[in-house]
Simulated assay, not measured.
Amino acid sequence: MYERILVSIDGSNPSNRAIDEAVKLVGLSHGRIRLVSVVPSLANVYAAGAYSGFVPVESEGTFEQETNEILARAQADLKQRGIEAETKLISLDSGTHEIADVVLHEAQDWGADVIVLGTHGRRGVTRLLLGSVAETLLRITTVPLLLVKAGDT
């Protein structure tokens, strides 16, 4: 049974659905949840922005603050449901790793029994150029992975 459930979140609808699925798992196993969120380096964000035509003006400090807020909101939501959850913010060094790599490394270090991750369903050129965290994690993982579709919008 999945007793150590790592959920990678980014504040999006798909990641909120991933939290909901983790709640179902923890209800069955009475296990633990660790919420993780990755702060990309500014260099990576600007590179992605160049491909998409959008270049953000935020600073790295702003990304960290937003990520901490995402983790805090998710932790508070789980607490309201009667579930205690750990949180961890992970900073991604410029150009050294992909988000999928650091999520897998965190899952391995923590001893996760399963990783739960929402999918964003990017298509076309954007997916080709930017890749997909879920797709990359699916290819490299050594830990069971539950992918949660974004759902209808």
Rank of each mutant, 00 (worst) to 15 (best):
D109V: 05
P14V: 15
V57C: 00
I70Y: 05
P56G: 02
V45I: 13
L92C: 04
E58L: 02
V116C: 05
L78W: 11
R17F: 05
I83K: 06
V103M: 00
V57G: 15
D101E: 13
V23F: 07
A43H: 10
V39M: 05
V57P: 07
G118T: 06
P56Y: 01
R34E: 08
N16L: 14
G95N: 09
E84V: 13
L104T: 01
A18S: 15
G95H: 05
S94I: 11
D109K: 00
V116F: 03
K88W: 06
V55S: 12
V116E: 12
F63N: 02
Q108E: 15
N44F: 10
R122A: 12
G27F: 01
T67K: 13
H30V: 10
G61M: 07
H97L: 03
S41N: 08
E86G: 03
L89E: 04
L117E: 01
V26S: 00
G82V: 02
V23G: 06
R34D: 11
Q108P: 13
I99D: 00
L25R: 05
V114S: 05
F54K: 09
D93L: 09
G121E: 08
A85Y: 05
V103C: 12
A22P: 04
E58C: 11
G31M: 03
R32S: 15
V114A: 04
L28E: 15
L25C: 08
S29N: 14
G61E: 15
D101R: 03
I19W: 05
E69K: 09
V55H: 05
S15L: 02
I99R: 07
E106A: 01
R17H: 11
I99K: 05
S12A: 13
R73G: 09
I90W: 01
W110L: 07
L42D: 10
V57N: 11
R34F: 05
I115W: 00
D77P: 06
N13M: 06
E21W: 11
L71M: 07
A50C: 06
E60R: 02
A76T: 15
G61K: 10
D93Q: 08
Q108S: 15
E86M: 09
S37L: 10
H105M: 13
L25S: 13
G121S: 15
S52P: 08
V103G: 02
L117D: 02
E66Q: 05
T119G: 10
I33P: 03
H30M: 09
